Computed example of a mutant assay.
Amino acid sequence: MSRIDATFAALKDQNRKGFVAYIMAGDPDEARSLAVMKGLPAAGVDVIELGVPFTDPMADGPTIQLAGQRALEAGMTLEKTLAMARAFRAEDTTTPIVLMGYYNPIYSRGVDKFLVDAQEAGIDGLIVVDLPPEEDDELCLPAQAAGLNFIRLATPTTDAKRLPKVLTNTSGFVYYVSITGITGAAEANAAAVAPEVARIKASTDLPIIVGFGVRTPETAKAIAGIADGCVVGSAIVEQIASGKPVDEILSFVKSLSDGAHSA
Rank of each mutant, 00 (worst) to 15 (best):
G18M: 10
V20L: 05
Y22W: 10
I23P: 13
I23W: 09
M24R: 01
M24E: 12
E30I: 02
S33Q: 06
K38A: 11
K38T: 11
G39N: 03
G44F: 08
V45P: 08
E49I: 00
V52L: 02
P57K: 01
M58A: 10
T63R: 00
Q65N: 13
L66K: 15
L66M: 14
A67T: 06
Q69E: 15
L78E: 10
K80D: 05
L82K: 00
A85K: 00
A87V: 04
E91C: 00
T94W: 03
P96D: 02
N104A: 04
P105F: 07
Y107A: 07
R109Q: 14
V111S: 06
L115W: 11
V116H: 13
D124Y: 07
D124K: 00
V129L: 12
C140W: 11
A146G: 03
D159Q: 08
L163N: 07
P164K: 00
L167H: 04
T170V: 12
T170I: 02
S171V: 12
G172P: 12
F173C: 04
V177L: 04
A186W: 09
E187N: 15
A190Q: 10
V193H: 06
P195F: 03
K201E: 07
K201C: 00
D205H: 12
L206M: 14
I208S: 06
G211S: 06
V214F: 09
A227C: 07
G229L: 04
C230K: 01
G233M: 06
I236Y: 11
A241C: 04
I249G: 05
V253P: 14
L256N: 02
S257Q: 03
A263E: 11
